[in-house]
Design a protein around this nucleic acid. Structure first.
Lengths: 187, 187
DNA sequence: ACCTGAACACCGTTCAAGT
DNA sequence: ACCTGAACACCGTTCAAGT
């Protein structure tokens, strides 16, 4: 039950942050969602900065795991690359939530340093994975793979941001399709 | 002096919102920046929702004007299209600020309806302008221009979001360059 | 017409007190 | 070890009171 509270807080805080951002997170609603008092949240996470950093760290850890699983279960690396946007699509399917990296990235100006650091790691692992897969699928030379990986990450994040503000998953799919026909993403 | 206070509030609130979002806006800091008391802000804008909506409306009005000016002063429409991302670049040059439409778009879940409406207009006028210019420069058929316009808007917004979270304008330029070589944006 | 101080409920935080 | 209530300073809001 003790560990469960901490895990439940991390999970509920992640969902809240993907919906309302770090600024939109608040201890009393979070505590209520888990069934404890707000002062109990401070026992597990002394400050909001600690909570935010823990949530962001867990988020990129989970993402790193999902990315490796995606690559492992794909017969060819092109297939993993093609499925990559599905990770962002799943956030939209889950109550129209935004990628935590995008939301906290937007808020980064006012974020505690510990949180900002974790958010940057999220971006780094996405770009590193894309770069690796682009090279493995030999659709790009190693020299251009890094630039291309960053552009894909930025464009997919942008598509999710726009589609989310309209609560329109079909728009996300259409944006991705246009990225493909234009050549930013491999067909 | 009276009108100046209202205008000064709108301007200061826009800057604050582009840095910290709607949730990061607060009446006391805003009032202090303009030199009045926080209760005076409520005289001009009864609620935070009113203030947010006024800021967002002014923002898309200014953007609409800038877009028309850009098109008017461009000898060819391709030229205006090429210069379009400069509008987003200018926000980064101005204290690393994010497009208000992107920030409030991310926050849209918790935004008052009046604010959300204005934010959507911002997206609409951007896409409509891009679509018009794409057709005029005959780089796209009318049938595909709309899809392409939305993809460009999403990708440029995403590039700004990523570059801003790194406080790296050069990254914005590199992302845009990659969009061009990949074919999403005309060379 | 425009501005202000005081008061209210809310939020992050602390801390002494519980079990 | 884990949880809680009470108290603090902060924020959006209201309102009576100023000019």
């Amino acid at each position: 039950m003790n560990l469960n509270v901490r895990e439940a807080l991390l999970e509920a805080a992640r969902k809240a942050a993907q919906s309302h951002g770090y600024n939109g997170l608040n201890f009393r609603d979070l505590a209520a969602a888990v069934g404890v008092k707000s002062s109990s949240v401070h026992y597990h996470f002394p400050s909001k900065a600690d909570l935010g950093a823990a949530v962001a760290r867990r988020y990129w850890e989970d993402t790193a795991q999902a990315l490796e699983a995606l690559l492992a279960e794909s017969p060819q690396p092109q297939r993993a690359l093609h499925e990559y946007p599905r990770i962002f699509r799943k956030s939209l399917e889950d109550q129209n939530r935004l990628c935590l990296g995008s939301f906290m990235g937007a808020e980064s100006e006012g974020l505690p340093d510990a949180v900002k650091t974790e958010v940057q790691v999220f971006a780094d692992i996405n770009v590193a994975w894309l770069e690796k897969v682009l090279v493995a699928s030999s659709s790009d030379s190693p020299a251009t793979a890094h630039q291309r990986a960053r552009a894909i990450f930025a464009a997919v994040a942008g598509a999710q941001l726009i589609a989310r503000s309209r609560s329109d998953i079909a728009l996300f799919d259409e944006l991705l399709a246009t990225y493909r026909v234009s050549g930013l993403l491999p067909a």
